[in-house]
């Protein structure tokens, strides 16, 4: 377990000067915003409201996750957990588990096996706290006519009984490219590739310019056009800072191979939910892993190889 994780539950350590200054600034801004929005003195707000405003401003002034010290990570996690309680009334636990050395995640999708049930989609939505209002989905299952792999003619909106005769199914999601164009274009380095290959987003650092969405050749990124809504009782409280923690409006998000699960040794929710075993996940650096078996024993292909993005997501057939 990483240092950040261990510290996540310890009380704040002695503040340093810079942080103290930031806290004071946040306090001032919180008070100012209170005054501006309600035109009433700060004292009339409930203590919870005041605490929430203070925390929100401290959150707005924090730095990029990658530049945070372990202590700062622990602090922001504590704030975020508290904010989830104050805003939504739920107890969440946010981890900052780092990548394991010697692990590089890879994914394979068996297009002979997928039958279009979309169990993966449903599991993904619940696991990753995706916005229910806009029906956000990271995974797209395309129904293709036999004889071609043509996304233009494929249909992802099928609602009839599956598998349909004469058709096959092919799923897409973020491919965690080894050479990700989305990371390249981000003007503020709010998205990057972790050592285990997962391309992550610091939701609090994202400015919402959506350049990454234009740059992704696989249409893997989603934007929170409005404040995301997840019913409190459906919130998955087991969260990761770079994964399924509650997002806010105006930022980009995407599949992270369920970083909150996979960093803890578990399989991604889509793999676990697939009733046909069409999804294979594992460590590319482990010669005994399932993903390595697939790469060595099956003929595989990737989408848009000509772009040089090197997806870590392969398709294969029986």
């Amino acid at each position: 377990m990483s240092g950040a994780d261990r510290e996540a539950n310890t009380p704040l350590a002695k503040p340093v000067d810079r942080r103290k200054a930031l806290e004071m600034l946040a306090g001032g801004l919180a008070a100012a915003s209170q005054l501006a929005s309600t035109c009433s003195p700060l004292s009339s707000a409930t203590p919870e409201e005041r605490e929430r405003r203070l925390l929100e401003w401290e959150e707005r002034l924090k730095g990029n996750f990658r530049l945070m010290t372990d202590e700062e990570k622990a602090e922001t996690i504590e704030r975020l957990e508290r904010l989830a309680k104050l805003r939504r009334g739920v107890d969440v636990s946010i981890s900052a588990t780092e990548a394991q050395p010697g692990v590089l995640f890879g994914y394979a999708f068996n297009i002979s096996k997928c039958l279009g049930y979309r169990e993966c989609v449903a599991a993904c939505i619940r696991e990753n706290n995706q916005d229910r209002k806009s029906n956000m989905q990271y995974i797209r299952i395309f129904e293709m006519e036999q004889g071609e792999i043509d996304f233009l003619r494929a249909d992802a909106t099928f609602e009839h009984e599956v598998p349909a005769d004469g058709h096959f199914y092919i799923g897409t999601q973020c491919f965690q490219c080894a050479n990700p164009p989305c990371v390249e274009v981000c003007p503020v380095q709010a998205t990057w590739q972790e050592p285990d290959g997962i391309v992550v987003i610091d939701y609090d650092w994202c400015i919402g310019c959506r350049y990454c969405m234009a740059a992704c050749p696989y249409w893997a990124r989603r934007f929170n056009w409005s404040e995301p809504e997840v019913p409190a009782e459906e919130i998955n409280p087991v969260q990761h800072y770079l994964g399924n923690r509650l997002r806010k409006k105006g930022v980009v998000e995407k599949c992270t191979f369920c970083i909150q699960r996979t960093r803890a040794g578990r399989l991604p929710a889509c793999v676990e939910a697939c009733p046909t075993g069409a999804r294979v996940f594992g460590n590319l650096l482990d010669p005994d892993s399932e993903i390595r078996w697939v790469l060595e024993h099956k003929r595989v292909f990737r989408l848009k190889e000509e772009l040089g993005t090197e997806p870590r997501f392969w398709y294969f057939m029986d």
């Binding site: 707005r60 274009v185 981000c186 003007p187 503020v188 380095q189 609090d204 650092w205 400015i207 310019c209």
Partner: peptide, 28 residues
């Protein structure tokens, strides 16, 4: 550009030195 941002309060992240400008990689 500002009105197009989803999270304009974070626009300060673009300031070199204060924020974390992705230069020279990002064309933006």
């Amino acid at each position: 550009v500002i009105v197009d941002l989803g999270n304009p309060l974070a626009a300060w992240h673009l300031l070199p030195g204060v924020g974390l400008l992705n230069w020279p990689r990002s064309l933006l």
